[in-house]
């Protein structure tokens, strides 16, 4: 299942999308990846592709990660898709807010490949 998982990386900074992409390839052998620079583009990809995991930044132009999370959780087709926030917003109130809206996990930037592996391993092992 792990190698078949399709991941959507949402971040307005291309360098961060590239770093996450390389970590996913190295840690999980995953190269089935879509990228979006904001929530609006991410929603379009979600609507047209079969996405198994969303890794999403918080602060982005046009549509924030939190708004995207809310939209994803409200849609019957995507409500169960694992949604991990990867963000520099590490304040308690941010984590609580995202948890209330149904986030599956939270990774605070900066992070290492080990941090990513620890958080995503259960998802890649079960495929859900």
């Amino acid at each position: 299942m792990a190698s078949e998982m399709c991941v959507l990386i949402v971040d307005d900074f291309s360098i961060m999308r590239g770093i996450i992409r390389r970590m996913l390839l190295k840690e999980f052998g995953t190269n089935n990846i879509f990228e979006a620079e904001d929530g609006i583009t991410a929603w379009q990809i979600l609507s047209s592709e079969k996405i198994d995991l969303v890794l999403c930044d918080w602060n982005m132009p046009n549509m924030t990660g939190l708004d995207l999370l809310e939209k994803v959780r409200a849609h019957k087709d995507f409500s169960k898709v694992p949604f991990i926030m990867i963000t520099a917003e590490g304040k308690k109130e941010n984590v609580i807010e995202a948890t209330k809206k149904g986030v599956s996990g939270y990774i605070i930037k900066p992070f290492t490949a080990k941090d990513l592996r620890k958080k995503l391993s259960p998802i890649f092992q079960t495929g859900e």
Binding site: F13, I15, A88, G90, K91, I108, K109
Partner: peptide, 23 residues
Amino acid sequence: NEIKDAVGEITNMISGQARQKLE
């Protein structure tokens, strides 16, 4: 542009880490 992108992200991360401590 990759450098500019990286500088933005580094600034964002420093701000986030610092604001976490400030909180």
